[in-house]
Design a protein around this nucleic acid. Structure first.
Length: 565
RNA sequence: UGGGACGUCGCCAAGCGGUAAGGCCCGGGGUUUUGAUCCCCGUAUGCGCAGGUUCGAAUCCUGCCGUCCCAGCCA
């Protein structure tokens, strides 16, 4: 962790670990794991878990394993595996040589299943899925025992062997733990341990298996085999903990990790479930998993977020067990803080309006040396060409305006950032009355100096018309128009809350020439506009594409809104 | 009286019986060739509610209220 990053004193999980270390529970060892199922791309909620698990490993001089929880091959593939590995590395964490798959343990898991059967603690059940549901009972009524519950050990053993041999179709039989059909905890009513999945090719084990272990069976065993000390997961698994413990207590595993639950991250104006994100991708509502509007790590990366800013976000939001919905402002604050300190400044005109300096000597050009950062000299300088024809932003000119408006108005003066003070003498309009050009004069004495005898309050940015280069600029806004699109209080599908203006593309923008050398992913502040980065998917031969990561804080926008109200 | 968990500022979140940290947001002021940054200042007499224990309670006890999760052969 860098010195600049905020540190949070502690959270309840670290307190548990401190307590364990104090009593010598794990002989001072701390081993965590991050266990994604490779059925989608990682999102900011996963980042919270990654920072927690890998962060704890770093701080306690322990280790954190990466383990793919690949027990449901139907939904999984290697593209997801690769993206997950890439995203964790990009975030700044490393699992060293501890890359595991739950499927690594399929043989061992099978042995343990046999063990459970021999101990009379598991049985093969022939009930259909529907029947199983009926027998399970309800939240308020106890379940009934399956008619196959008392199947003799030998028969169970033989049936399990035949399941493995592929003799039965999907759904024909399952292996179940024999626990308690009357338990108030649904998870303890003889949970399924194995189900049959014929004909799927598993991305790791190929066709060697036609039955796959369930999460509730696989997870505790995998944790124990890897010597995990603290198995951290989200709150919805709290009800599974008794089962997690039951598996560990009733099998011959080497240790008994402790499961600890914390609350998952919710972020306003987005969705965080893999199912919903998959829907957005599959239905074409976004360009893909790395669409800059997506809350995925890949999306945030393409949007221009830094790994540091995401880690900072994760430490700022903290870890607790309370339901929470974090405001976008929190994330934005993190990336602004990072980029403000570290990104070079450039000038870019998003909505160009031509300015002709009528008294600037014909043919004259100047190379202005300009600081790359107003507070940090170590970021150096660059040269920016100044010519008699320029572009400024249309939003920086008004024919008439209130005194609050400190930009260019007819007859008024304004400072061109890093250059001269100019005065607007004449507004040129086309037949339709649209402003097409401004004729201005400049004060040659104001380069690097304040004007004599008067104050000029406004400063606006500009680009030389002759040397500026065309660029495409993509302005992103929140993906959804509702703060909580997935907990809709009415019947609406979350997709109905998609923000139709989440992407605005500007194709006429002009950026300063030094940007021609920028490489994909490089980040800048476009002064007075926001932070932008060169898109990662830069098409050959077309104008450069810049993605807006986040705007600058804009107190003028607030004043404007107040004036209108 | 199904079970599990959670309720501290608009949003996160410390606090663990000694008199409410911090961050984000917000409001006010200052500096500024970015209406940015930066710097000051301000913002919970109160911790879901009601009782109780105590010299002292957000912290302990009791009872209510509210919210979230659980009936996949998903994870």
């Amino acid at each position: 962790m860098n010195e600049g990053e905020a540190t949070v004193a502690g959270n309840f999980i670290r307190q548990i670990i401190d307590g364990d270390n104090a009593t010598g529970k794990h002989r001072g060892r701390v081993v965590t794991r991050f266990p994604p199922e490779p059925n989608g791309y990682l999102h900011i909620g996963h980042a919270k878990s990654i920072c927690l698990n890998f962060g704890i490993a770093v701080d306690y001089k322990g280790t954190c394993n990466l383990r793919f929880d690949d027990t449901n091959p139907h939904k999984e593939n290697v593209e997801y595996i690769e993206s997950i590995k890439q995203d964790i590395h990009w975030l700044g964490y490393d699992w060293g040589d501890r890359l595991y798959y739950a499927s690594n343990y399929f043989d061992r898991l099978y042995e343990i299943a046999v063990e459970l059967i021999k101990a009379g603690k598991a049985y093969v059940c022939d009930l259909t899925a529907d029947e199983t549901r009926e027998f399970r009972g309800t939240l308020t009524e106890a379940g009934k025992p399956s008619p196959y519950r008392e199947r003799p050990v030998d028969e169970n053993l033989e049936l399990l062997q035949r399941m493995r041999a592929g003799e039965f179709e999907d759904g024909a039989r399952v292996l179940r733990a024999k626990i308690d059909m009357a338990s108030p905890n649904m998870n303890m009513r003889d949970p399924t341990l194995y189900r049959i999945r014929q004909g799927v090719i598993h991305h790791q084990t190929g066709e060697s298996w036609c039955m796959y272990p369930m999460y509730d069976f696989t997870h505790p065993v995998s944790d124990a085999l890897e010597g995990i000390t603290h198995s951290i997961c989200t709150l919805e698994f709290a009800d599974h903990r008794p089962l997690y413990d039951w598996i560990l207590e009733n099998t011959s595993v080497p240790c008994h990790p402790q499961q600890i639950e914390f609350s998952r991250l919710n972020l306003e104006y987005t969705v965080m479930s893999k199912r919903k994100l998959t829907t957005l991708v599959d239905d074409g509502h976004v360009e893909g998993w790395d669409d800059p509007r997506m809350p995925t790590i890949a999306g945030l990366r393409r949007r221009g977020f830094t790994p540091e800013s995401i880690r900072d976000f994760c430490t700022r939001i903290g870890i607790s067990k309370s339901e929470n919905t974090v405001q976008m402002g929190m994330l934005e604050s993190c990336i602004r803080e990072d980029l403000n300190a570290n990104s070079q400044r450039r000038m870019a005109v998003l909505h160009p309006l031509k300015v002709v300096l009528t008294d600037y000597p014909k043919g004259q050009e100047q190379q202005l040396e300009v600081a790359n950062h107003p507070q940090d000299e170590s970021l150096g300088t660059r040269t920016v060409p100044f010519t008699g024809e320029l572009y400024i932003d249309r939003q920086d000119f008004l024919e008439t305006a209130s005194k609050k408006f400190k930009r260019l108005v007819t007859g008024g003066e304004v400072r061109l950032r890093n250059a001269y003070v100019i005065r607007c003498d004449e507004v040129i309009k086309d037949a339709a009355g649209e402003i097409v050009e401004l004729h201005c004069s400049y004060d040659p004495a104001t380069l690097g100096a304040n004007p004599e005898g008067r104050k000029v309050k406004g400063v606006i940015h500009w680009v030389s018309a002759k040397y500026g280069i065309e660029a495409e600029i993509r302005l992103y806004d929140r993906l959804f128009s509702q703060p909580a699109p997935d907990t809709s209080r009415d019947e609406k599908d979350f997709r109905e809350y998609l923000n139709p203006d989440s992407l605005r593309t500007l194709t006429q923008s002009i950026v300063e020439p030094s940007l021609a050398d920028a490489h994909p992913g490089e980040r800048f502040q476009f002064e007075r506009e926001g932070y932008f980065c060169v898109d990662l998917h830069q098409p050959e031969g077309s104008p450069m594409i810049f993605n807006r990561t986040v705007t600058l804080r804009d107190s003028w926008a607030k004043i404007e809104a107040q004036q209108k109200a």
